[in-house]
């Protein structure tokens, strides 16, 4: 019985959001407000359950003296972060933000270098002639040409004229094909989401299918 009522609640919210397709209306606005308000609370609860409690409180309780001494730093920085909410002490929050920004930048550089730039360049260095494998030869040519012409299109320190211009214009064609593929996949994804919601209404709520 409880589940039935809750399915109706879910159906109400689903229809309320869908009603936006007709036009903006109070039902949609209510559903939107509930969504924004409750997800903010959800994030707060999440922070408690997966960060504050296990990584601060429990770690403090279970930790040795050294553990606790080390733990003081991140706990202090986390409290600094919350100083953002107090206008007079707002500047202290920059210390915490500076740490997250520095870490983010360091992690970004490390990941992109080791995990993207180097292996991707390696991946582009492929043999352009493979004996007895015509198909792979052609594929390798397409991959190398696609990559190089695309990069040349984004190379702005040289005028796109003459041979270089032709090269970069080929790049645009590859880019368009790539965007076309992304576009096709995006339509597929959006339609799937709608199928999911309509299936919920027909199956879980109305029981028609």
């Amino acid at each position: 019985m409880a589940t039935t009522i809750w399915v109706w609640v879910a159906a109400f919210f689903t229809l309320a959001i869908l009603s936006f397709l007709y036009k903006d209306n109070p039902f949609y606005r209510i559903a939107e407000s509930v969504y924004v308000g409750s997800s903010a609370a959800y994030m707060l609860l999440f922070l408690w359950s997966f960060d504050v409690k296990p990584k601060m409180i429990d770690a403090w309780v279970k930790g040795s003296t050294t553990d606790r001494l080390i733990l003081i730093i991140p706990i202090t920085l986390s409290i600094f972060m919350l100083m953002r909410f107090i206008p007079k002490l707002r500047w202290i929050s920059r210390w915490a933000i500076a740490f997250t920004v520095g870490m983010g930048a360091g992690l970004g550089v490390a990941g992109l270098l080791q995990g993207f730039v180097v292996p991707q360049i390696k991946g582009t260095i492929v043999p352009l002639w493979i004996a007895n494998n015509f198909k792979q030869t052609i594929n390798n040519w397409i991959i190398v040409l696609g990559t190089l012409t695309t990069i040349s299109y984004f190379f702005f320190s040289r005028k796109h004229t003459g041979v270089f211009g032709k090269f970069s214009r080929t790049g645009v064609m590859f880019i368009m094909i790539a965007f076309g593929a992304t576009f096709g996949f995006t339509i597929m994804a959006r339609v799937s989401l709608l199928i999911g919601r309509l299936y919920f209404l027909l199956h879980d709520w109305l029981g028609l299918i």
Partner: peptide, 24 residues
Amino acid sequence: TGVVAPDLFQYRQSGQLVAIVSGL
């Protein structure tokens, strides 16, 4: 998801990724 998948195929060719199962 279908939105993410097309941007991952270069990792497949470079051998960094085993396979991509995409979308519905």
